[in-house]
Design a protein around this nucleic acid. Structure first.
Lengths: 343, 343
DNA sequence: CTGTTAGCGCCTTCAC
DNA sequence: GTGAAGGCGCTAACAG
């Protein structure tokens, strides 16, 4: 087991040919005799040869690997994206480097630099704020980059985004159609553009419906617990502004919404009869919480897939420049958390 | 931006020294004059030098990278493990290759081979069946390997496991203490050792309590939907064996349990009054489903951390051999899904 | 068709 | 303290 890893040189020695010949034989490339090719391949097989991709990467200046930066691996939103990226990468025989940044901007830059040092062929970034603030940093990097969920601000950047404004508009249209009037927004402070679009859609919808002064609470994280803890502030702020409870809460994402559901229940409030709740993202669990959560399902897996395909396109067809931005749309899923008297 | 990447040779030329000197200066290693060191570092900084880790990996025969194989990235169980692995790797300046296998055994082997070709320094496998069936394959690979959730069967394998038997025993003890008698088990066919241990604990507990003939249904996947769909079969089988419904269902994991909750509700059965439900894993959402789910929380993040520390230990302290197996214990979380009249 | 030579970028002996 | 060779394993140019 501790035998030295066999190289093409070793094979060459056994086969009585030169290493380049072995190289050609193994890759089935370049002019080479079918007889020797078969023989070399057989010997390589028998000796248990595994190509050294590091060496190949050095000489080829292409490593057949891509780097993926996400803010938080634990977040189910990113999990599906990672899955999409991984599947496409694997299908094209690319290896995937994964790095998380915990929403730390410095860390994001460091991660990209690390990928650069590893000579990855391309980078995908699914980290909210990156495009917003680090366009210049990314511009000096001579590696194709595709952003997910972030608009591209530089010419060298590509992106796959979701139409959050339209999606949030759909949520709001649904809530308004259900007759809700005091619709509060639970926002995510470090949500960057994503939070901004959802918030704007909410505000615009309220304005168009001539509704009373908006109430919003903003939190730092976007976890279930954060949502649960935000309920007090939310209710208090509504009481102060409106003199009564909100009749609906539109949450930045599903995790926050799930937390809000729990927070409301703990206070003895019923959903949707006392307060309706809507989320965003379309996590798998949303049909199974109590009550089932209305949400806007983003095609997260597909976003990962499209981003990767875009990146691989940049790596091969340097001619046919792909569009710099692909924008996808989600699907409104109406469930009990916003529909009264339907149970 | 399209300027060629600067190498230590370029720096050497500018600084008027030789490349080895630059190399030494940049790594702060080997005897070198403080004056030249500072100058070289400054020049490197100014020229925007990024070390080429591929080249370094080739000569050093160590890439400072590790490979992680998981069955399914989307599964929240694995997500936390990945997180733990990634954090430790990052802290030690290791890069992480990630690959998923969709529970396909061939794919698992292929993934490991791919990591081997990339010259990773070590491999972590969190894929249920691997250790069971591929010990020989892993044995011929001259790279340290740490298994998660799987016992090691060979001398060269290391593992971090969870004490599922004890954990499942705790669940059963709790159910029995609550007075449940017709406790069915919803199992996972491809669960390998993990399913086996939980199932055995269930069986043993039933036997010790002198309870009636066991009823079990086994499914292929371990998703929410699978759990939901299994409810019919579960109820039917119980009716056939016992002439009545089960009064409790112990599920292989939380995802299945969440599906069972939904399936029962859809049939108008109340949890826990008609049927109690218990899961396994301790997913973050379990307190937020309806009703909150009793489960056994595995320290998933810590498992990832420990596995990685173990692996890094193998890579450095070749002398002090770490134990081949680390076994962790989870925590029983008792919630409403198994406790009657507590709401 | 195949062998020879060269080099990817870096680190590691060794001389000096 | 520093420079001059040599090589990690592989592919790419050219010869032959």
């Amino acid at each position: 087991m501790s035998k030295k890893r066999v190289s093409i040189k070793d094979i060459a020695a056994v086969a009585g040919v030169s290493h380049p010949t072995v190289s050609r034989a193994l890759r089935g490339e370049g002019r080479i005799g079918e007889d020797t090719r078969a023989r070399v391949v057989a010997i390589a097989q028998e000796m248990g040869y595994t190509p050294n991709l590091v060496a190949r990467g050095l000489v080829m200046q292409r490593t057949r690997s891509i780097g993926l930066v996400v803010t938080n691996i634990g977040d189910p939103f990113h999990a599906e994206i990672i899955k999409g990226v991984e599947h496409v990468a694997q299908a094209h025989e690319y290896s995937l480097f994964l790095g998380s940044t915990t929403a730390n901007p410095e860390q994001e830059v460091r991660m990209v630099r690390s990928f650069q040092a590893r000579n990855v062929d391309g980078i995908i970034i699914s980290a909210g704020q990156f495009g917003d603030r680090y366009a210049e940093v990314l511009d000096e990097i001579d590696i194709p980059i595709v952003l997910i969920s972030t608009h591209s601000t530089g010419d060298t950047l590509y992106s796959v985004t979701h139409d959050d404004y339209t999606g949030a508009g759909q949520i709001m249209a649904h809530l308004l159609a259900q007759g809700y009037q005091r619709i509060a927004y639970l926002g995510h402070l470090s949500g960057g553009r994503v939070d901004r679009e959802r918030r704007n859609a909410w505000l615009d919808a309220l304005a168009q419906a001539n509704l009373i002064q908006p109430v919003t609470v903003d939190v730092q994280g976007s976890t279930i617990d954060t949502g649960m803890e935000a309920v007090d502030a939310l209710l208090a702020k509504a009481e102060r502004s409106w003199g009564q409870l909100p009749d609906a809460v539109f949450c930045y994402n599903d995790l926050l919404a799930i937390g809000v559901l729990s927070g409301l229940r703990r206070r003895g409030l019923r959903v949707p009869d006392d307060v309706a709740v809507a989320g965003f993202d379309g996590l798998e669990v949303t049909p199974h919480v109590a009550p089932p959560l209305t949400t806007l399902a983003q095609p997260r897996y597909e976003m990962g897939v499209r981003a990767t395909e875009m990146l691989l396109g940049l790596l091969t067809d340097k001619v046919t420049a792909p569009p710099h931005e692909v924008q996808l749309r989600g699907e409104l899923l109406i469930r009990e958390s916003t529909v009264k008297g339907d149970s």
